[in-house]
Design a protein around this nucleic acid. Structure first.
Lengths: 365, 365
DNA sequence: TACCCCACGGAAAACGTTTACACTAGGCAT
DNA sequence: ATGCCTAGTGTAAACGTTTTCCGTGGGGTA
């Protein structure tokens, strides 16, 4: 025998493990394991002795050991672009609540839009043996996905990722919400509408932009390439984009942003330039983060439900974990819809007789 | 023999584990382990064979197994109050970057201010065998801390927690920053200053409030209990607090908030009430989240450095992990300082000749 | 009374690592 | 030539669980 369990060392307190519980309850470790895993065939007398010992010792099972032998970590990965963009914490919160309700915990990865960091995150997910991963960021490399496939770990993309199998992509209906936004502006009399996209290396940014252009067209409006600016989904990108527009010889009267942080950046730039929202510019955001209700003035925006996103992502993952259930392959899209607040109004220099602005939509999630 | 490693099953792909690498590299698993852990005594020839096999198989070690045997998870816990309050994601981001730089990963827990959730978080930290925990929220129960102690897991409180041993508390110098704020307002001519605290069940909220009162006194100003309102560190709490103040017969001319989200809530309430900042009310926040620079108008606030917080917390934890290093027990406090932007100005109905407001402080982190 | 079956508990293998210890060569000094 | 030391590798124990398989005892049936 090379190494032996150290003999009863009176100086160090005894380790609290399954063996300790077993000996205190005067049963075998197998019975302890069965009890705490709620296997129904345990004698109630022994079970109560076990529970007594568990609470007496304040015992928690070791997750590592448990995962090692069972091959299931009960951990779900969530990879997002940037944790400091308030949209993602909201998503994370929903994701966590739903995961916990389903008996899982979550491991968060934030890529900060860097490919390198993305790789580190994916690697971490792999190393920690997550049971599934939801990915809401751009630019994951194929070899990483292959490794997920090799380890039989299901993944789901939130946002289109066309090169992936269908069952691993959760489509968001960008068009519906943006169309409502364009219509809303058109009804108010806007004819010149700009769009601030996210970083165009990102597929979802491209989709939102494409959705905007398509909506514009079906509303019968013309796109002006000068008013299509690439942002970065963050405050500073929004501010910079607005400054670029203000430097242009002709301005749009309304601007749609591909996320709320960008819109808040625009609001700030307009404030700095002494221009007023919605009197000088109408603004529409995207996401409907909590903060959108509190900007000055409150932001009209397209709501995408974090809860729906999280639920669908987790259910997708979980359904693929247990092949017994029929995967059902529902191809429905995540819905989006316009929430009208106060950053949209009549276009500048217009005195047409137009319908009153509807009141602020009450927030209900 | 009860269970045997399944015989070469041609249908399932071979598991990629340390044994696979070992056999491909024609060495023992011990050599593989030593190689990937950079033990210096490995023959370079064998090592290169191992690395070749590793990259060929795209092998990642199993963290669970690794943690199980070594007893170290290389995981640091971080428990925060509420992930949707933007301050915390900023802290999380810093914490993660520093942890990664030190060779650790992080596990995030968000308590949502609920004792029950706090317990679940702590339990999770225990179960996942974190090597240390940083806690920035209120109301952790003693028995949980005892369990950390029993498992020899160091913990550190960010925020005063007087009943804990000194080396496990990172003190924040609330007074310094708030004092600057009060002075700043006093110089502008404000005599009537209100304060919106966090939930007073929280020790840190009490500290900030106590710091404010003490600063008021040393500036020679009187506190009005009607202007001391309890908020919830969130947007709606700020809005509600401001509405309470506006319902009062006499108003303060300036209000200090115990965090930025509260201040943004106040700004919103003032906007709704058609009052102007800083013309009608001066406002000061606390934390200096990224967003503070982008509010309308940009928020004057007390900066607390997330990076400093994170660095100190992690170094504290890590120093206690290796008892060889002298713990050094540095009792310095986390510094805070005022960042003057545009929500502070002369008090209402005042036409004294006072110094110009300084320009916006450029943001540098 | 004899037999069988069922319910339940315990012993022990297995999960994928790290690491203590044993062992083998080879180099060097005597 | 012999002995000793060192460098480097391999074997196997150990980590704390889950889970399989077997044994035992009790109750029901013929």
């Amino acid at each position: 025998m090379k190494r032996t369990r150290k003999p009863n060392d009176v100086t160090t307190p005894p380790k609290i493990d399954i063996r300790g519980v077993a000996s205190l309850a005067r049963v075998s470790i197998a019975t302890v394991s069965r009890t705490i895993n709620h296997v129904p065939t345990v004698d109630p007398v022994l079970a109560s002795r076990v529970w007594k010992a568990v609470s007496e010792l304040n015992y928690f099972p070791n997750t590592q050991a448990r995962a090692l032998v069972s091959g299931k970590s009960r951990l779900l990965g969530l990879v997002v672009s940037e944790i400091t963009n308030p949209f993602f914490p909201e998503l994370i919160q929903e994701f966590e609540q739903i995961a916990v309700a389903r008996g899982y915990e979550i491991l968060i990865g934030s890529t900060n839009y860097e490919t390198k960091t993305m790789e580190v995150c994916a690697r971490r997910m792999l190393e920690r043996q997550v049971d599934g991963v939801a990915i809401m960021t751009f630019g994951i490399e194929d070899f990483l996905l292959d490794r997920f496939t090799a380890d039989n770990i299901p993944y789901v993309f939130i946002d289109p990722a066309p090169s992936r199998p269908l069952n691993s992509v959760l489509a968001v209906d960008y068009r519906a919400g943006i169309y409502e936004g364009v219509q809303h502006l058109a009804v108010l009399g806007h004819r010149n509408i700009g769009f601030i996209s996210g970083p165009l290396t990102r597929r979802s940014a491209q989709s939102r932009k494409a959705a905007f252009l398509s909506c514009l067209q079906s509303t019968g409006l013309k796109a002006n390439p000068e008013w299509l600016i690439e942002g970065n989904h963050a405050l500073d990108g929004g501010r910079d984009a607005m400054q670029k527009i203000l430097a242009l010889p002709t301005w749009p009267t309304a601007i749609i942003c591909s996320n709320d942080m960008t819109a808040i950046g625009l609001q700030h730039a307009l404030f700095e330039a002494n221009l007023r929202v919605p009197d000088d510019f109408s603004l529409i955001g995207f996401d409907d983060i909590h903060l959108a209700e509190y900007t000055i003035p409150p932001l009209t925006t397209v709501r995408m439900s974090c809860r729906e996103l999280a639920t669908r992502a987790i259910d997708n993952l979980l359904s693929r974990l247990k092949p017994l259930d029929n995967p059902a392959e529902s191809a429905t899209k995540i819905t989006t819809r316009l929430i009208v607040r106060q950053t949209t109004g009549l276009p500048r220099n217009t005195l047409q007789d137009l319908p009153q602005m509807p009141a602020t939509t009450p927030r209900k999630r």
